[in-house]
Design a binder for these strands. Structure first.
Length: 567
RNA sequence: UGGGGUGUGGCCAAGCGGUAAGGCACGGGACUCUGACUCCCGGAUUCGCAGGUUCGAAUCCUGCCACCCCAGCCA
């Protein structure tokens, strides 16, 4: 679990909230929201936004809404609503009874549009999409007024009603806010606020053939719900001027519909090294088969993290530690891994699993004898109890724990040397058996009966302790080792003519099919995480694992200073 | 002379005029029946750069520089 920070959590948004509270804004109410569009899967960058909004509401005794921004039926689907709901629940952000859809307010929004028209602040424009773009001007040149800008209120009302009634084809007309075609802020150059879309909506069906645009819809929805602090990412900074324009107009023209004045604040979106976060890129990875799906454990999606075995507590701790600021940043993947290890170290029971087995025969062990040894579930935590592991004449150890010709400071097994088997005895390597190609296939060792774990009176001191599993009792398992999906810290750093997909790590997934795990894992809770001692943290794959076909995902490896030193 | 932002150690990030928090990463050491965990110790004379104001500046002012975002009838 996350430790409580020994310093005051501080960021610019909390500072704003504290100041607002001091000044008595919004009658002291704090109300946030998370507004996903149901058009894709959530990733860890969304988790940052969700947890930020949720924790602010929680910490200030405020409220947190979940509102789907479903204004574009062409891209949206119930399937995504379902997955998003599941992800947010998993993260622990509780919207209580405030699950909304922006489409719930389509009628109110239509009325608001009518009022804008009547106030002479919106007009129906017949320009084609290309013409609208041309009239908009460029970054450095002002735009020019649409020839339809000064239609009469009556004509606008009539045309807008006919748009709504489905009399015009898609793209033929739009409703625009009348603001300023010369504004330096492109969003203010008479933005489109309604477009014609003869598309069936996942919630409203065929009721509408005009749909509001985000810039019109979002601020108004915030105002309707009584949101006080509308947090979004930096790229919406330029939209804030329009956001305020809409809210001002709502307050003036439709006060009975709104519950206050929401303010928009922007913070930097999350980037993490060696992965990608944009919906477009994630979609390509899935559609072009670079990964096996949205929940492939190598993906940064919430679904993938969950499937991999990462806990929501670790994700929350991570989001807490990265902070909230406005500068573009790229957080080191090592921090996420650290948060995962810290969480799992405290709760994952220790078991033994041999990933790449090498058979060892204890020559002086009584044939057929089996001794059930006690293994602590969580060293240092007696309440976690123990479990039993069978020790017998034939065991497996890790191939890499034996070296015929070891380097200095190799604390494991080698010819004539001793090592302790975790929780069992000290053994000595007497003989190395090889196949015709010279590959080591078996070790003959002797054990010292005086060295039983916990009852060792031999006075022997060995540096190395290795894990093992009884051949006779071990359970076969498949283990999937995951590594960064991308070789580069920034996957977009690609050579001329290449793109991020050329930086994919060919070894991001390593499947080991001949692993052996201790029998205690036979009936384990599929929801629990384990530490395979000296190997890392593992989780039963929820999709592919079954009683007779154990499949473990490595959530994250252990820190390994030996491997690092020998790089 | 378009608009909006951002620049604090390798990566995040506090700081808001009183003399550089914290975390990750990294290096060194201790401990260890997980080369894990844990525990110590180490690091910015300096806050994009240059001037200025001040007894005193990362914090205020001026001017530069670098980088990010915006020209969907996407969100």
């Amino acid at each position: 679990m996350a430790e409580t920070a020994d310093y005051e959590k501080s960021n610019f948004i909390l500072a704003i909230i504290n100041k607002d509270l001091e000044e008595g804004l919004n009658d002291g109410r704090i109300h946030t929201r998370f507004p996903p569009e149901p058009s894709g899967y959530l990733h860890i960058g969304h988790a940052k936004a969700i947890l930020l909004n949720y924790s602010i509401a929680r910490d200030y005794q405020g409220k947190f809404n979940l509102r789907f921004d479903d204004t574009n039926p062409i891209k949206e689907d119930q399937e995504f609503v379902d997955s998003i709901l599941q992800d947010i629940k998993w993260l622990g952000a509780d919207w209580e009874d405030r699950l909304f859809f922006t489409s719930d307010y389509f009628d109110t929004k239509y009325e608001f549009a009518l009022r804008l028209i009547k106030a002479g602040r919106a007009y129906v424009c017949d320009l084609s999409p290309e013409e609208i773009r041309d009239y908009r001007g460029t970054l450095t040149e002002p735009g020019k007024d649409s020839p339809y800008r000064n239609r009469s209120v009556e004509e606008n009302l009539d045309l807008f009603a006919r748009m709504k009634n489905g009399e015009f084809p898609d793209g033929s007309r739009v409703l625009r806010a009348k603001i300023d075609m010369a504004s330096g802020n492109l969003n203010m150059r008479d933005p489109v606020i309604y477009r014609i879309l003869h598309a069936s909506h996942h919630r409203t069906g065929d009721k509408w053939c005009i749909y509001p645009m985000y810039d019109f819809d979002h601020p108004f929805s915030d105002a309707i719900e009584g949101i006080t602090h509308s947090l979004c990412s930096i790229e919406f900074s330029d939209n804030r001027l329009l956001y305020d324009w809409i809210v001002d107009n709502a307050l003036e023209l439709y006060p009975e519909a709104v519950k206050g004045r929401p303010r928009q604040y922007e913070f930097a979106r999350l980037n993490i090294t060696n992965t990608v976060m944009s919906k477009r890129k994630l979609r390509r990875l899935v559609e072009e088969g670079f990964v096996q799906g949205w929940d492939d454990p190598r993906m940064p999606t919430i679904a993938a993290l969950r499937r991999r075995g990462v806990t929501s507590e670790a994700v929350a701790d991570f989001c807490d530690r990265i902070g909230v600021a406005r500068s573009a940043s790229m957080v080191d993947m090592a921090l996420l891994e650290h948060c995962i290890r810290e969480d799992l170290n405290a709760k994952a029971h220790r078991v033994m699993g041999v990933l790449e087995p090498l058979k060892v025969i204890i020559t002086n062990w009584p044939e057929g004898q089996v001794e059930w040894l006690e293994i602590e579930n969580l060293p240092g935590d007696e309440d976690a109890g123990t479990h039993k592991a069978p020790f017998a004449q034939e065991i497996y150890i890790e191939q890499e724990d034996f070296m015929e010709d070891p380097p200095k400071k190799f604390h494991r097994l080698s010819p004539g040397k001793e090592v302790r088997l975790k929780g069992a005895y000290i053994i000595k390597c007497e003989e190395v058996i090889k196949d015709s190609t010279g590959k080591v296939v078996e070790l003959r060792c002797t054990y010292d009966p005086e060295t039983k774990s916990g009852e060792d009176n031999s006075g022997k001191k060995v540096k190395g302790v290795i894990h093992w599993v009884s051949v006779q009792h071990g359970l076969p398992a498949t283990v999937r080792l995951y590594d960064n999906l991308f070789l580069n810290e920034n996957p977009d750093d690609a050579d001329e003519g290449q793109d991020f997909t050329d930086n994919i790590n060919p070894e991001s997934l390593l499947v080991l099919k001949d692993c052996i795990v201790e029998p205690a894992l036979a009936d384990c809770d599929p929801e629990s995480r384990f530490q395979f001692m000296r190997k890392g943290y593992f989780f039963l794959d929820p999709k592919d694992s079954s009683k007779n076909n154990l499949v473990f995902n490595r959530i994250v490896g252990l820190r390994d200073s030996w491997a690092k030193k020998n790089k």
